[in-house]
Design a protein around this nucleic acid. Structure first.
Lengths: 251, 251
DNA sequence: ATAACCAGCCTGTCTATACAATTAAATCCG
DNA sequence: CGGATTTAATTGTATAGACAGGCTGGTTAT
């Protein structure tokens, strides 16, 4: 882990908009800029509190607050006795939550229905096993459900399910309840991850969603945990012309 | 907003495992327990720093740290001159976290640079005024910035800014700092909303992003509040082949 | 040579004090 | 009565000082 020369300290406050910000905030801003500009690389050591105090003539508690908050925000990592370092990439940055499609449609006051296209019991391929965190040939279920909003296709839901954690998945009536609703009832989903992309649909997907080949679609890949186990992984495909993801943060 | 009796203070430290925790951490734990148990209701006023100091005999800075961190974590809301209150429940509202494209690129260990394409002062059209929640002809700034990751276009950032809230927006050097970084420094962004869609780029956008006309793009529309005012609205366009949104929920 | 020790650096926490900024209520005054 | 002003309460920030605890590297003792 390389060091940071003192020269980097001298201009920490340079070129900052002289907005009426508290000192600790200016310091935070100056440091995040050093990081995002690439001047301070991952795992590189950043100046110690004492060094900043000496260079900038501010109180150690002020420096401490800036570094502590940046650590809480994931920019820095601190080790007692060693120093402060630029953290590894912020993995979980943009976070959002997606609702159950049936709920969403209902919330808009529209009619929801769904068609079950595939429901089978199978053994996990290597790729599926990787996705679910199980061994190859572990028992899984595969399902494909097509969701409609006011009789227009709104989502293709491709899903694989860990059979150990939801053994009765293939006995459900998915015309009545969505797979999501059933899985929520059998396994308390405590954690999840999403991957959102814009993609072009293939021919089968075009037909199912009733869109042109050239129409961009919003694809959401989602994995859901119950405790340490992955319950299910889904790929949700929405026609771009009829679907938006809405999110809200703060208060 | 009702009050909290002093009796609630006396036993703040009771029933806590006497784990070797710092005082501020015990205080945080005691307060979150009061909230999650329902003893302290939403919008209810919680003891002031001075009251806790008097009741528990700890330093005000220690109490301040506990309350400040709980505020950052969304448990409390503080108003200078008024007091500290239990925050609204963090509902199942889909939440995103804002971040900065420059940071993201840097986090991946890649080089970020940006080109300022447009920066102008103007009067809000009716549509822009609606978006920003101001009157037509209210002063705004418009900017278009093209962001690169390792010299490949990764984002077109179209933005309008409320000139009243960020009067020096047009005097910034957006080759050095992103608009996001400047706006964060002048206005504490407390709230925001996102709209994510899959769209096809028009000809100008294709050229700027160096993609084919048929390539789907991920479009994020974002509005950001500081208190009750909308500071800025942005439209972010990413090439679908080079960009994914990643999210994580739960714990 | 090896082990034990220690000095120095660094972060983590706590305290006491001071002043600024904001808000609501109380007070004053015409 | 009503408007302007003052006051008290509360949070926000900054500072100086103190001590604890972890880590590293050099020194000393065996």
């Amino acid at each position: 882990m390389s060091d940071v020369t003192t020269s980097n300290l001298i201009n920490l406050f340079d070129d900052l908009p002289d907005a009426p910000l508290p000192i600790y905030a200016k310091l935070k801003q100056a440091i995040t800029m050093k990081i995002s500009s690439g001047e301070w690389q991952t795992n590189q050591r950043v100046p110690s509190e004492a060094e900043v105090v000496k260079a900038l003539g501010v109180s150690r508690m002020t420096v401490n607050r800036a570094l502590r908050e940046l650590t809480a925000e994931g920019y820095l990592v601190r080790h007692q006795g060693l120093g402060t370092f630029v953290a590894e990439k912020k993995a979980h940055s943009a976070l959002f939550e997606v609702h159950n499609i049936a709920e969403e449609v209902a919330a808009r006051g529209h009619k929801h229905r769904s068609e079950l296209l595939v429901l089978e019991s199978a053994k996990a391929t290597m790729e599926e096993a990787m996705t679910l965190g199980v061994r190859t040939n572990h028992g899984i279920f595969r399902s494909v459900v097509l969701h409609f909003e006011n009789d227009l296709p709104i989502q293709i839901e491709e899903r694989i399910v860990n059979a150990t954690l939801a053994p009765d998945y293939d006995k459900q009536d998915f015309a009545k309840y969505t797979p999501y609703e059933y899985l929520m009832s059998v396994a308390p989903m405590t954690e999840g991850e999403h991957l959102v992309e814009a993609v072009l649909p293939n021919d089968i997907e075009c037909e199912r969603l009733q869109v042109q080949t050239s129409e961009p679609c919003l694809q959401i890949k989602r994995r859901t945990w119950a405790g340490d186990d992955i319950v299910t992984a889904a790929r949700l495909l929405h026609p771009g012309s009829r679907f938006q993801l809405f999110g809200h943060f703060g208060r």
